[in-house]
């Protein structure tokens, strides 16, 4: 399951809408501590500037990974949009997927009124869809912190 803050979902959708009809892409980084929480929104340039393909620019990719390395972050979410098809990984998406611990989020902008947002794990060529839980904050979502503090 992907648990993600509402403002980050809105940021991904806004980016996808802004770049439509080209595909938009980016990363949401989070601490490399196993908490699996997306925190830092990093929209990336689609170097392909295409309605059917996306690719992080090679220099941007190096800069991004160096930055995440320096911050002890991992790419918790890797997102991109499909602008004329459903939010389901294509064969190309699967061929390129190489972050086994990332949530691959797809946003479809084919409907101008309502977006579709879905999340997947893609490991060794196998697509596994997962539920997306949108939360206002991560404060009470940590395992073992089910009880809200006393007023």
């Amino acid at each position: 399951m992907l648990t993600i803050r509402r403002d980050l979902v809105e940021a991904m959708v806004a980016h996808a809408r802004r770049d439509h009809p080209d595909e938009a892409c980016g990363v949401i980084a989070g601490a490399d501590d196993g908490t699996d929480r997306p925190e830092r929104f990093i929209p990336m340039l689609n170097a392909a500037r295409s309605p059917t393909f996306y690719e992080f620019d090679s220099a941007d990719l190096l800069k991004l990974y160096r930055e995440m390395g320096a911050n002890d972050e991992v790419p918790v979410v890797i997102y991109h949009s499909h602008t004329a098809t459903e939010a389901y990984p294509s064969r190309t998406d699967v061929a390129y997927a190489s972050e086994p611990f990332a949530h691959y989020v797809l946003v479809s902008t084919r409907d101008p009124e309502a977006h579709e947002l879905r999340s997947y794990r893609i490991v060794d060529g196998v697509i596994t869809e997962e539920p997306v839980e949108v939360v206002e904050s991560y404060e009470f979502t940590h395992p073992g912190q089910d009880d809200p503090p006393q007023e």
Binding site: S50, Y54, L61, H82, A95
Partner: peptide
Amino acid sequence: VTILPAVAGGAR
């Protein structure tokens, strides 16, 4: 030397 998987994909 840094090795990074390309981050890419697309609808087709």
